[in-house]
Design a protein around this nucleic acid. Sequence first.
DNA 1: CGGATCTGCGCCAGATCTTT
DNA 2: AAAGATCTGGCGCAGATCCG
Length: 478
Amino acid sequence: MKSKFPIHKLNEYINEVSIRNNKGLVSEVYSVTNSDGFIKSTDYFDKEVYSKNISNYKIVEKNQFAYNPSRINVGSIDYLRSETRVVISPLYNVFVCKSVLQPDYLLRFLKSRVGLTQVKNRTRGAVRHSLPLDQLGEISIPLPNVDQQLRISSLLSSIDLLLSKKHNCLQLLETFLKAQYYRLFGNPNSNSRQWPKKPFSEVSVNENSKRVPIKESERDKRPGKYPYYGATGVIDTIDDFIFNGEYLLVAEDGKNLLLKRKNNAFNVKGKFWVNNHAHVLSSNGEVNLRYLEFFINYIDLKPYLTGIDQVKLNRENLEKIMVPIPPTELQAEFYKTVVLAENLKGRIASSLSNLKTLYEIACTLSFSGSLNLEMVDISAVKPYTGPASAKGIGVKRKVDQPFKNQALSLKKIIQSNFKTRKFKYQELAELLQAASSDEHDYEKFKRVIFDCLKGVGEVSLKQVFDEKERSILLQVSK
DNA sequence: CGGATCTGCGCCAGATCTTT
DNA sequence: AAAGATCTGGCGCAGATCCG
């Protein structure tokens, strides 16, 4: 990895934390997922998936990191942002950063292309690719001073903010369309406007027979520009097409028919391929295809679903659905709104994809140290000031290296300890960086220490090798 | 004995097989 | 061949097993 910043091994700046919930003081159970990071377990899963007894769970505090060793390669890592403590399953590894390494900077690095490559290279195991904490520690990270880290974080998070605002715009448009549908047609479930009804089979042409599933390995051999559709959207691309024109696709199976996290009916135009998980429908002129699409998305499909284990909307049941038929003019009015909204959605989506590219570029340039970050305003940013005390909240199973009081100045620490104190190179590097210096070479340490010891009488400074720690220490003695 | 690591379960979504 | 049923691998977890 190339960078203008000094490169360091991560293990110099992180310490494992393993504090259990033995006293049962923490009841908020979280998970760390690849899509949402830290999230309340019951918000992510439909039911309680965690143990009834959570006394062995690990307690996580604000700014501490947690990751799933078998899932970090797909992004299951995050640091806790909330003020309140939470507990997570003991399978997670929990660690804390020293103050010279800002959590947000570290997270963005580990999720960047160059960070993720290192993560993937260090995982072990054949079936489960697992990354133990000591291997995470072997990762090299470009480490500028705290000020620079904050600027990089701030720059990247401002792009993130724009991305989420664009996502919100897309959501708003969805809400707007639903409101428009209800305004024009009333409630689709109860047919509150009492429009005349026809079965689905009479208002569309089913073209399921033309579908062809192609297995993934085959698709890999046939790369191309045509989208390949599954139950709820594009899942791949391929070198050929079997449909050409405007169609309505309706999911045939999958839990999404109940959960509705994505649309079950969607409009597709142009040349494309469909596997055997979506019904393919074209218009027979009875109703506007787009009206039909939104109708399917807004109604409750539960009465039409079969399958005990695997949820399914088979063709027979789909064709039984009674579709209210509002006047053609109203359908045309709705269609006009849909086209306008989608035009807007398309423009937002393309700027979203540009923004994602921008984020990637900003990431690469930031970590390589080739951006001038003076323009980034960090006056409102509160830097992370190091690990908090975990006293009294649980039982520590593993004793960590005690952290030094960062509030004390380097000079005070050295002066008050000079008689017997030994200083680890790393400890000094940390203190020096905390004092916002980005230099940390051995000669500088000596100068700083001699500076600090001025006026305390005659002292000597020598290097000793610590057998136990297997590292070189600086010893100050009279 | 306690912490680290491995194994397997339930669930999901897409892939593939079986029946009509 | 179409429709439906079953299989498969990935995910996130719990609990068993391993090991110093």
